[in-house]
Design a protein around this nucleic acid. Structure first.
Lengths: 237, 237
DNA sequence: GTTCGTATGATTGTCAACAATCCGCGCGCC
DNA sequence: GGCGCGCGGATTGTTGACAATCATACGAAC
């Protein structure tokens, strides 16, 4: 028969669909940090009742994208200075692991896939389309962790990349030239294709270091966290 | 006045409380891999209606602990051979980052805290209490990421440690001697206290490598993933 | 003028009922 | 006997209503 993967209609739960749209809204800035998510209004917008909406929101709470205050509501998290550092340090750890797995399994194939995104990025750079540039940048790192073949790395990176976009939207970053950005990513891919693990890791770390330095001057990857110790593990309401 | 941190009664949402208990149940094996979570039964057990219970379960879905099949129910994930490798590789990445942050910020203070857990572990080893031993082992790694001061590393590690316990429960592991286990952890702490980052990282990696070798002989950290590529990013129902 | 208390509107938390879907079983048919 | 069909029970998905809590505005007392 050879019917490839005919997954039936809507195998996705309603909560999953709404959750995805909420993430999208947070990433694009339609929902801004600190914003309260009014249940009635959102439910009306999604054309569902409050039940499924609340289920979807709970997903984002456990991902750390929303903060829950009992009897008060759910709010988009606000990124403090320490969070910038935290996000990039976590990303560095995840993507480093992804890179290692890629280089030790199928660096050639991965290189080819990454070059597609690179081409897209170069196109955006040429057009001076900074929005497309950001999208390509995001996709590059998504692809990187996806190519690692690790479900868990991919899931964790997914959340971190959303938070990265929040950072970029919140802070007025001092972009370097699009050409440099393309070059940085290209260098990583070249190292991957060459199978030069050491160099690829160094380039990735420098890439992250570079980003965090622009966003939060003074702090550095793996530096002492300026954030308050908080009282132990977070509760996530 | 100096009234420190008087958080009012029950700042935690019901969903958060139930979610925590569900995680506990999965970790201890009260809920086994593949088990379906019947809503009616669980709701009755928790003395709540299905609403809050479903919200809690959605949290675990987004954490990857539960798998959702529409109109069929929610199931505890089943760990395939490739997952063992995946879990430990992810843990290695996270804990590596935590270790670096600790050593570059407050290695002495962290060392002291870790030694407390070490003492606990040694006590369990002396008593031959393998259950307490496992608990101390878990706590060691929890403490490690907590001491990093990174909310995100801590959250990600939390889920991974639950999955680790699931692995250990599922597979009949070939334990090495409790004394060796204590020694391995102690060596890491010593390297931390000495500020020897390189050595601490090597020891941690060896610790992970050792664990994965025992659980899934033949595979190795960062080796090629034997798991199917799946069709892209997971959906989490 | 400030502060406390209260009333009121809005929002969240919870529940029980209804609709839709799935599973297992028996029946009829080939 | 094997296969398709349909039915009944059980479970999940969704909804609207009710209870509890919070925020705000207003007024009284000091």
């Amino acid at each position: 028969m050879n019917m490839p993967e005919v997954e039936p209609i809507s195998r996705e739960s309603t909560a999953a669909i709404i959750a995805r749209q909420l993430r999208e809204a947070i990433m694009t800035g339609a929902l801004q940090p600190g914003d309260q998510l009014g249940e009635a209004e959102l439910a009306a917008r999604f054309q569902v009742s409050r039940g499924p909406l609340r289920e979807a929101m709970q997903r984002l709470v456990s991902e750390g994208l929303l903060r829950s205050e009992r009897h008060r509501g759910l709010f988009v998290i606000e990124l403090e200075p320490g969070d910038i550092y935290d996000i990039y340090a976590a990303r560095a750890a995840i993507e480093r692991a992804a890179l290692i797995r890629i280089i030790r399994s199928d660096p050639a194939g991965a290189g080819a896939r990454l070059r597609e995104v690179l081409a897209e990025m170069a196109g955006a750079a040429g057009d001076g389309d900074s929005s497309a540039m950001s999208r390509a940048d995001l996709r590059f790192h998504e692809e990187l962790v996806a190519l690692s073949g690790s479900r868990r790395l991919a899931r964790m990176a997914s959340t971190l990349l959303i938070e990265t976009r929040m950072c970029l939207a919140a802070l007025q970053r001092t972009d370097h030239s699009p050409a440099d950005r393309v070059a940085e990513h290209t260098a990583i891919v070249e190292a991957v294709e060459a199978g030069d693990e050491q160099r690829a890791l160094e380039l990735l770390e420098a890439h992250m270091e570079d980003a965090i330095t622009r966003l939060a001057p003074g702090t550095s990857l793996y530096s002492a966290p300026p954030q308050v110790p908080d009282d132990g593990v977070d509760i996530t309401g």
